[in-house]
Design a binder for these strands. Sequence first.
DNA 1: CTGAATAATGCTATGCACTTTACTAAATCT
DNA 2: AGATTTAGTAAAGTGCATAGCATTATTCAG
Lengths: 386, 386
Amino acid sequence: MAMSGTDLSRMRELNQLSVLWALRGNAPSTVTEIAGRTGLSRPAADVLVQQLVTDGWAEVEEPGASSTVGRPARRYRFRAGAGHVLGIDIGVHKILVMLCDLEGNLVQSLRRPADPRASPDERLASVDQTIDDVLREAGMAPADVWAVTVGVTGPVDERGRTSIATSLPGWREADPVAHLRARFTCPIQVENDCKLAAVAERWKGVAQDADDIVYLLAGLRTGAGLIIDGTLRRGYGGVAGEIGALKAVRWLNAPEHLATCPGVPSGAKPSEAAAWVFQAARDGDSAAKTAVQRYIRDLAIGVAALVLTLDPQIVVYGGGFSRSADLVLDPLRRELAKHCLRVPELRASTLSDEGVALGGLRLALDQVDNRLLSGQLAAPVAPQFS
Amino acid sequence: MAMSGTDLSRMRELNQLSVLWALRGNAPSTVTEIAGRTGLSRPAADVLVQQLVTDGWAEVEEPGASSTVGRPARRYRFRAGAGHVLGIDIGVHKILVMLCDLEGNLVQSLRRPADPRASPDERLASVDQTIDDVLREAGMAPADVWAVTVGVTGPVDERGRTSIATSLPGWREADPVAHLRARFTCPIQVENDCKLAAVAERWKGVAQDADDIVYLLAGLRTGAGLIIDGTLRRGYGGVAGEIGALKAVRWLNAPEHLATCPGVPSGAKPSEAAAWVFQAARDGDSAAKTAVQRYIRDLAIGVAALVLTLDPQIVVYGGGFSRSADLVLDPLRRELAKHCLRVPELRASTLSDEGVALGGLRLALDQVDNRLLSGQLAAPVAPQFS
DNA sequence: CTGAATAATGCTATGCACTTTACTAAATCT
DNA sequence: AGATTTAGTAAAGTGCATAGCATTATTCAG
């Protein structure tokens, strides 16, 4: 534990950040409110916030009609529009690009279908196109983007490669970071889709109140993302949560119970087949009910392994099958009770298929925050390089 | 993320702590060295360290014969003896009590055999006796102890109870915290033995260089302790790491392969049987080699589940069987390679059976540190209550 | 419409903690 | 004995936060 001494300038820096944090995420605030929130004196808060205004981090709102007695106060607001970040979901069937400001408000979002068999080059070209459209509609240039996070399937190493495995054809050789660096000078990171979806659930989803979360991606693929003590758990080699690789955990085969269920319309695509089975089970078809039951039983073993290892507060059931959570949650809870010492709360995701891009936005915002906390609080401009 | 403003007095407090940290764990230091280590100016370091001396946290060492040119410097040293902490291992077969000072130097250590069938009252009485002996031999009173950590088997809840399960007979009803509070007014915490052993490996064992560690307790019982991002992972309900509860993980039965190995001397106690099998395997006995192989194969499934979930840097092989690490490590590594995406480094523990008590010391010291960091830096006295 | 009450702003004086600089003290080396 | 090196100490300077007071802008009551 190395602590280093603090001096006056560092103290001012910390107080400046403290004021910035007090502004962000709150309605436009008077100096008195800021002073109260930060614990600083009013004069101190005053000069600090004025410095933020001249630096471009905050802006003044001159007093309008006041509803209370006394001299109406100037209000200051965080200039959320000073910078923006991108969250990009490169999926098998779709590409989703989201743009938000520094406060996390969604500014622009664009979705574009993708051919599951598209080559990496074609897919990246489509990503480029979508980014262009988003930026154009938002009236912004690449230099206005402060951080980019990309979500892809499969384990991601620290250089942003998915060389171990991925469902995107040819993607093991792809280098999305290098590709995007041609256009963006800001930090670019690539992350696994389950991990990003987990982050999104804690940010805007059903797990905002928890610090220890297992996110379960349930769909034609099965995967997991872990949040421990409030931070995303990547693992020493970036492959944390890949419990599905264990043969004793039948995650690879679990969705097959749905695909091979008797009665599935012939010629149906896998995703259609699964949807059909869930609906049939809802309608009382006994073969479908058995198939769902078997799926849940297999799914539960892997979830139990994660839960027993981590003892999380919440398990979030997300992914393509989360629309059928009404059929899954209760039986899954019963299965977990058989295996686990303590059954965590089970919740269904509500972010539909936007979780990955949303999580990307959150991670990009975290990147910006870290720069503010570590580096000095300079005027708001996009950081260079990654 | 709530940040609160800093003022001058808080700044001084931080700098004071910074100097304290710079003293602790280093040889007696001159003011110039302290200034260099903390980044403070020499006059600032001077007044701060002198304040620490008057408060009782540090002491002066007047200059003796100097070996270098120039005026010899006064040296200041952390007064490690200002306080002490206890680490207690309440095991099935033994009770081990360790006492160390604030710098973590072992002051006194005492071991006492325990009857596996002893009742909780008998066991606690033996603990009391051992504590008395340790304190007496160290010339200390209970009031000199600043924190106590106790290690027991089984999952521990936040109140220090092991109501779910434990190998200590009758212990599910025991309340060691309440018992010890009759004697100590300082904070007392109870923790699972595997978790403490994991902490010890990172402090004084073979995993000092790692932040992400899976500690494997391999013996007649099998268990695990997890360290993630450098901190002990307890889990939301305190049952993290209990992967052995999963039936698909054959940890409960794994040691039976050793007990039921043909050729084991009849009438041998389980621990003797295991030792015999390992030695026979070393000597080339093929039945014993098969038994060990089966044991490792079963063990590996649970380890693989932990490793796939967490992707740690290191797996430490500890517990009673760690003396046979020469037979286990290589085959275990090969088994893991079959299951895992990335095989972590595998190391054998060298702390023999002192890991639990050592980990207890470390956690007690952490408790003291946290008090220093959060509360103000008062004169060194034992904290009251927990 | 005028004056009192209220609440925010702006300014000045004060105090605190650290840094810089300069000077004195105590040892070794030539 | 004098030069050199390093430690300790004192004084001046800087930057920041706080406290208190005067000022300003608005509402409310008569």
